[in-house]
Each structure stands twice: as structure tokens, then as C-alpha cells.
Design a protein around this nucleic acid. Structure first.
Lengths: 242, 242
DNA sequence: GTTACATCTTTTGTCTTATATAAGACCTGT
DNA sequence: ACAGGTCTTATATAAGACAAAAGATGTAAC
């Protein structure tokens, strides 16, 4: 292992492992070589490899099973994650994503700032719809720097069933993870109501997030509007009685 | 150190350290003994103490500064945490909490299930209001098992400026951390509107959370309604143009 | 006297070695 | 066929040695 120094060993190992994953050396849900083997390969001890893998497990890039092995984790879509109470959506209904549009636009001042780009840099604007059991549940707009994702085709997005996170990973080697996430409640305007096929002034959960790559660089900025009334949530709230 | 076995050493150390913190052996922001000293005290190696402290740092019970020491972290309130962009609230405005009520009620079926209590167990129902710069921003209802928090007095809550998390900690030795958190958007009903001093049908962010102690046992169930329009959020959303 | 700088001490952080524990595969006797 | 060892290979834990960072302290130059 090349000792660039100025950086702890386990950090270098982490990078090397990440690079190997990005190079497609091991497939999704495929087991990596054992910690001992990786240790030999990088010329460090098992404990050091372990510390590197620990960090990747914490970032949900890998998962482990004692006595069995360490595996590459899949890349499920952000939008669909953590919205439902049951793991795969209640009642056996499967959420699906419909791609609405994918066009090139130019970054405004604030957005360029947030994504660390020069002003008016080229961006992909991707819009998609989240459906659950036939009903439209959410609308999302995502903005990606064109520089990092040069050829973003609608065909390809459709191929991956709208899973942009997987696309970023497979086609561009960028592994996204959640950065900041902000929530707020808003009323549906005309545009949102039309796209969500619901009424103006329905309350919507607005989700603003900045996804970063595993080095912490901002990569995708997105806003989603969700009809939370319809979601299979926890038992509803107590009746106020004050 | 008593070797109960069936549990790794570092886990036992973790418990002992946690117990010492609960016993008030070290104050908030006070430094613990060095890892080497703790190692001597518990009769284990520094590395083992380190692994125990690692876990507590991950749970934000402790924080560390290389070359300086390890310190007991404070207990800021849940409600106020992570809502603002700037660390202490924008524009120098300080959020404050007003206690509305604190009464004893009986658990419904679902709630008893969630909190792991028998049906109709006694609960404290605490209601409080979040103010920012004079304006009412949020309303929260919290439910705590009376068994775990026997004497909950309004006077005491007021003393701690409404910080229930700190109260649970100081008076009952229960260190709370976030468990599940769910978000949804709802419209203000008459009750919420009246208490929040706003209009019916304003969109509100509803936050349902279950706080657990550091052993993972559910302790506090709460619902909050927040006026997110007023919060100092990220730059507002792009104008839809589809 | 004060300041710049080296050095010492104490602390957390990293790394290796050795050993324990978990899981599954493979025997092997009934 | 199947129940139960035991072998192999994985991750998990523990201890000790050493490195790096931060602050305190001493000291020479001015």
C-alpha cells in the first residue's frame, strides 16, 4: 500500500477499498475478501482493515455478518427510503417511480453556491413522480451538476426504474449518501396539485435535501413534495383535550 | 471489574462508565479521567476503554478532544434541536419554551403497546409551546410513563426552562436519545390554531417521535406541530416550470 | 520584563498481534 | 436419513506498543 502519509493508514485502506468497489471489483451483495486477506493485500494488519470497514459499514456502503463475511450494500433510492413503516411498503403495495422530465438548465446563484459550482453552471433537472398502489404520493425535483454526470439519459433512468441513486453509482461511480435534510409543511400550489393529481391547499410535506458523495462533496440537491396523509404511518395522533 | 461474561468486556466498561455518569461522578463538560486511568480502574487495557467510550461518543453522551480529554456532553432539548439552520437560531433570536400543562392520564391501547406498558398505565401528559422571538412556533405534547418518572412537577420543569430531556436526566437519571422520528404535513385544526395563535388550515409539520433510553427501551412518546413557514430555513425552493 | 521557541507531560489516536466467538461445511456413527 | 461432533474460515474482542496533538513549562534572546 502506497504510504502517502499525512493520513492515517486505515483512511488510506478505506479509500482503496472504496476505489475497488467503484471499479466494480465486487458486485452488490457479493462478499469482499476476508479482513485477513485484505490485510495481506494492503500490507497492513487485520485490525486496520477492520477499522476502515467499520467506517464503510457506518456509512451503509457495506454490511457484515459475523462468521460469514462482509458484503457490498445495495443502493436503494432516497425518495423511497424511510417513508413507510413497514420495510417494503404496507399491504404488499410496491412504490414505483415515474420519470417526468430530464432537461438541462442553468444554476441560479444560491444553488451554484450550495453545490459549489460557478454561477450559471449547467445542471440536469430531473423530475419524477412517486406512486404507491396506483395513487400518486410524491413529486420530486432533483438537480445534478452536468459536469459530474455528463450523459444523463431518460432511457437509462427508466431502465433503472427511476432509481437515480443507483444510476449515479452504476454509470458515474458516485456513491451518494444523505447530507443535510430539511422538512417543512407547505400547501399545494396549482402546479403541485396538478402533478400530484390532488387539490390545491392540501398539506404537503416538503423535503429539501442535499446528497453528498462519500468524500462529503455536495452532488445532488433536491426538493420533494409528499402527500403524507396517504402514507402508511404510525397510529394517528392523540386527540387534543386542553 | 465484575466479569458477568456472556457480554464483551468493553460493553461492561461502557455500562460502568454510564453508571458513573448517572451517579453524577463527573459533571457536564467536565473531563473524565484519562483512558489510561479508567483502564487501570476497571482492570482492562486502554484500547478496551477506548472502544467503550467510542460508543458513548457515537451516542453523543461524550465528546473528545485529542490531546486534551474526554468530556460529558450536555443534554439539549429535542424540540429545539436541528430545526434551525444557524446553531443558536438566526438573528440572535433565542427560542424559549413555555409549559402549558402537566397532568396525569391513562394510556390508550396503542400507546401502551408502543411504550411497552400494560393497558391503562398511568402517564404524564406534558404540553409545551415553543416560542422564537415572541412568536409561537410550535406546540408539543409528550407522554411519559409515570412509573419511570414518579414525581414530575411543573415547578421543576419551569426551573429547567422547559427542557424535559435535561429533567429526565437530572432528576431521574434517564438519558434520552432519539428513536424513531416520523414527519408528516397536516392542516391546523381549531385546537392547534388556537394554541399556536395562528389560522385554521395553516400547514403544520407534524413530528411524531419515540425517545428511548441508552439501553433502547422506549421512554417518551411525543407529537409536535411546527409552523415551518416561520422558521429560518434554507433558501426557498425553485419555482416549478414544467 | 517580555517574547519567541524548544521541550516535557499528558492526553487521545493509530496500529499490530493474539485470541475469542460465530457460522457453515463436512464428516461419521447410528 | 439424520444427529451431533469437529474443522475451517469468517468476523469480533482484547491488550500493548507507539504516534500525534495540545497545553504547560522553562529558557534564551532581546
Amino acid at each position: 500500500m502506497s504510504k502517502l502519509a499525512a493520513q492515517p493508514l486505515y483512511r488510506q485502506v478505506l479509500r482503496e477499498v472504496m476505489a475497488a468497489i467503484e471499479a466494480g471489483e465486487w458486485d452488490e451483495d457479493e462478499s469482499l475478501p476476508s479482513e485477513t486477506d485484505l490485510a495481506k493485500r494492503f500490507g497492513v494488519s487485520q485490525g486496520t482493515v477492520r477499522k476502515a470497514l467499520d467506517a464503510l459499514v457506518a456509512d451503509a456502503v457495506l454490511y457484515r455478518r459475523q462468521g460469514v463475511g462482509t458484503f457490498v450494500a445495495g443502493t436503494s433510492d432516497f425518495l423511497l427510503r424511510g417513508l413507510f413503516t413497514t420495510p417494503a411498503g404496507a399491504d404488499g403495495v410496491k412504490p414505483s417511480v415515474e420519470l417526468l422530465s430530464c432537461v438541462k438548465i442553468h444554476a441560479g446563484e444560491q444553488l451554484a453556491e450550495i453545490l459549489g459550482l460557478r454561477r450559471a453552471a449547467a445542471l440536469w433537472q430531473v423530475r419524477r413522480l412517486l406512486r404507491v398502489g396506483g395513487q400518486v404520493i410524491g413529486l420530486e425535483e432533483m438537480l445534478l451538476p452536468e459536469a459530474n454526470f455528463p450523459s444523463l439519459e431518460m432511457r437509462r433512468i427508466r431502465e433503472l426504474k427511476g432509481n437515480l441513486r443507483e444510476l449515479c453509482w452504476r454509470d458515474f461511480g458516485v456513491r451518494l449518501k444523505d447530507g443535510q435534510v430539511r422538512y417543512r409543511a407547505v400547501l399545494a400550489g396549482q402546479t403541485e396539485a396538478r402533478l400530484l393529481m390532488t387539490d390545491v391547499n392540501e398539506p404537503l410535506l416538503q423535503l429539501v435535501r442535499l446528497a453528498v458523495d462519500f468524500e462529503g462533496r455536495p452532488q445532488v440537491w433536491s426538493v420533494a413534495w409528499l402527500r403524507t396523509e396517504e402514507l402508511a404511518f404510525e397510529p394517528p395522533v392523540l386527540s387534543p383535550q386542553v
